[in-house]
Amino acid sequence: MTDAILEVQGLSKFFGAVAASDSLTFQVERGCCHALIGPNGAGKSTAIAQITGEVRPDGGSIRFNGREISRWPVHRRARAGLNRSYQITSIFPAFSALDTVALAVLARQPHAFRFWRDARRDERLRRSARSFLDRVGLGDRADVRAGDLAHGEQRQLEVAMVLATNPQLVLLDEPMAGMGRAETQQMLDILRPLKGSLSLLLVEHDMDVVFALADVVTVLVKGRVIASGTPSSIRADADVRRAYLGDGA
């Protein structure tokens, strides 16, 4: 008996003649790290955007914890426990790192209609935000403007933001994009302990990262699943080698 946190069924999305999702079907098991791989333009980011609600699918269904969510607005899905990071860093550049995460902490409260107290002196908010900054190794960068952080630090900040929303399923769109070796290793150390308590859907080009984290790998080409299975079976799959990994893999 499987326990899927996310079930994507027959999802389709066309941009003109380009099929970004073509009867896309897969599911993410609870507590697992599920990797989505595929060549550039395969439709990985578009799949994520449809799951979070930022892109409206042409058809198909998305079930989260057994409930059909494909018509819910973005914020409702996020509140239900579905949160994401972006392939292209997406932050609040004028906020300090701490304020950025405080905002994410605030986002999981029932509402932010509080008008009087200074949010910068709100200890509950700040303490919680600080703990997430510490978790991603940005504890000593709390007061730096997010826009002034180094690229790798901004990626870490994004992860801190996502974790602060108290998610059940985290969608990570190339969290290591543009990172050096050491930063990639650091990010791996941040992500690895999340497995189990959280479910992860990971889009990543770096195969070392995929094979280090993933329990299941799904390979996407032109919006379609061409293979799905354990990392070792995917590594051995001839179609996948031809379509994606290249002969040297």
Partner: peptide, 11 residues
Amino acid sequence: QNEPRLQALGI
């Protein structure tokens, strides 16, 4: 600064 991101956070 970034309204889509704010919605994705759940607001």
